[in-house]
Simulated assay, not measured.
Amino acid sequence: MLIPYLPSSMNKLVGIDSRVEKVISHIGMGLNDVRYIGICGMGGIGKTTVARIVYEAIQSEFEVTYFLANVREICEKNGIVQAQKELIGHINGSLSNFNNEYDGSRIIQASLCHKKVLLVLDDINIDKQLKNLAEMKDWFGSGSRIIITTRDMQLLKIHDAHEIYKIEELAESEAFDLFSLKAFKQQKPAEEYLKLSRQVVKYCAGLPLALEVLGSYLYGRPIEDWNSALEKLKSVPHLDIYDASLLTINKNGSLEMHDLLKEMGKYIVNQESPNDPSKRSRLRSYQDINFALTQNKGTEATQSIVLYIKGIYQEKYRVRWRDLTFSNICQLKLLILDGVKAPILSYIPCSLRVLNWRRLSNGNSALCGSLL
């Protein structure tokens, strides 16, 4: 009974107030309808933190409240029934004896259908979890609110969320403040660390988890360690900040990849053959592609080549690549050339499946397609 009135353990978090206010504005406190409220965004962006603070701010207005954390992890380790048992155990104050999802759903509905409920389902990743924990609005009494955090906005749309709040990356000033608090325990770094701090903040691209992990890692270290760490990050990124969830879909429906994920991908491919690009599965820099094409090195490793050249570099590379030949690359499946000017393209391997060559030498044509 006292828990809703205890002070929050998450005070003074950088950039959190405005995000919490936006979510609360969608809650519709005082209204008697039942609402699903979605909070979505990439891993490490702060979904759980925002949901937790919103939960603590409004929980005193409800009869039954529960924050079911790490639903994805619970279900992956022990199954959906375990998640149901945790929820029901909190509601009824005792363990329930059931062994299947159907019975669990029936008990949840029977326990909550006449109560004003605040339920947070944290880190949902598949539709099955929502169906078995909070499928229908009539499972809950009037005025209930179910807050769902997820990396997949489509799940929220399928489940007919009343409002969906997408958490954006921190603004540059917010990111700098958060990093400074973790790395220096104050809002501004010492002058000699200022330039290095800006480099780290730029690298983290507004992702709170990355800023916290790297800030804590660098705390108390001498400046020479900072220089070493920054160099290392360019080739061996800090593993704690990565998640494949760093893929998002923008307003235009295009897939976007966070810079941190791009760096990890580059690192993985480079490790396939650190000293010989022709033995890597993917080539994307001019230097590596030029090496593979001009050194007459036969390879069975390279499966994709992607190169974007713009501006003043186009003429330079056109001169060097008078004749593009791929006769030595026998497993090539994907070829994307953008801005590459070369008059002859010969010896296309039969393995090629996707070809996209934009901005050819005549400046106004493109060749693209899927080859079967």
Rank of each mutant, 00 (worst) to 15 (best):
L2C: 14
L2I: 15
P7N: 13
P7K: 15
K12M: 12
M29C: 00
G30Y: 10
L31T: 13
N32M: 11
N32G: 09
C40E: 09
T48W: 00
T49M: 02
V50M: 06
V50F: 07
V50D: 05
R52Y: 01
E56I: 02
E56A: 03
I58F: 00
Q59G: 09
F62L: 03
V71R: 08
E76Y: 02
I80M: 10
L87Y: 07
H90N: 13
N92W: 08
N97Q: 14
N97P: 07
N99P: 00
Y102R: 11
I107R: 06
V117M: 08
D122V: 05
I124E: 01
K128Y: 14
Q129W: 01
L133F: 00
L133P: 03
K137I: 06
R145T: 00
I147G: 07
D152P: 06
M153F: 04
L155E: 00
L155V: 00
I167C: 07
E169G: 02
S173H: 15
F184G: 10
K188R: 15
K188Y: 14
E191L: 15
E191W: 10
E191K: 15
E191F: 14
Y193E: 08
L194N: 09
Q199F: 04
Q199P: 02
Y203S: 03
P208G: 09
P208Q: 10
L211G: 03
L211V: 13
S216A: 14
Y217T: 13
S228E: 15
L233Q: 06
P237L: 05
L239C: 07
L239N: 13
I241R: 03
Y242D: 02
L246Y: 00
L247F: 07
T248R: 09
T248H: 10
N250I: 10
G253P: 10
H258V: 05
K262N: 02
Y267I: 04
N270R: 08
N270C: 01
Q271W: 03
S273Q: 01
N275P: 00
N275W: 03
P277N: 12
R280M: 00
R284I: 08
R284A: 07
Q287G: 13
I289T: 00
A292G: 10
A292Q: 12
A292K: 11
Q295F: 11
G298D: 13
E300D: 15
L307F: 04
E315V: 12
K316I: 15
Y317E: 11
R318E: 10
W321Q: 13
F326V: 12
K333Q: 06
I344R: 14
L345G: 01
I348R: 04
A366L: 02
L372E: 14
